[in-house]
Simulated assay, not measured.
Amino acid sequence: MIRFGIIGTNWITEDLIKAARGIEDFALTAVYSRTEAAGQQFANKYDIPHCFTDLETFANSQELDAVYIASPNSLHAEQAILLMNHGKHVLCEKPMASNVREVDRMFETAKRNGVLLMEAMKSTLTPNFQAIKDNLHKIGTVRRYFASYCQYSSRYDEYLKGNILNAFKPEFSNGALMDLGVYCIYPLVVLFGQPEQIQGSGLILESGVDGQGSILLNYKEMDAVVQYSKISDSYTSAEIHGEKGTIVFDKISRPDKVEIRYRGGGIEEITKPQMDNAMYYEVQEFIHLIQNGFTESSVNSRINSRTTMAIMDEVRKQIGLVYPADRA
Rank of each mutant, 00 (worst) to 15 (best):
I81Y: 05
L117K: 07
Y145H: 00
L160H: 09
V103W: 06
L75R: 15
S153H: 03
K161E: 07
M106V: 05
V142E: 00
Y145S: 05
V90K: 04
C92L: 11
S173T: 14
Y156A: 08
N113Y: 04
E108V: 15
K169N: 14
S74T: 15
D157M: 02
G181C: 04
F129M: 09
E158W: 08
I164T: 04
L180E: 03
A167M: 11
D104N: 14
Q62W: 13
L136K: 00
K122H: 15
R105E: 14
V67C: 05
V67R: 01
E93S: 14
P72Q: 06
D157Y: 02
L91E: 00
Y159V: 03
Q151A: 08
L136F: 01
L116F: 01
P72A: 02
E63P: 11
I164V: 13
S74F: 14
Q151M: 13
M106E: 04
R105M: 06
T124H: 12
T124Q: 06
N113A: 08
A80E: 02
V182G: 05
Q79T: 07
E158N: 10
A97V: 04
D157S: 12
S71I: 06
G114R: 06
S173H: 14
K133G: 12
M84G: 07
A176M: 05
H89V: 12
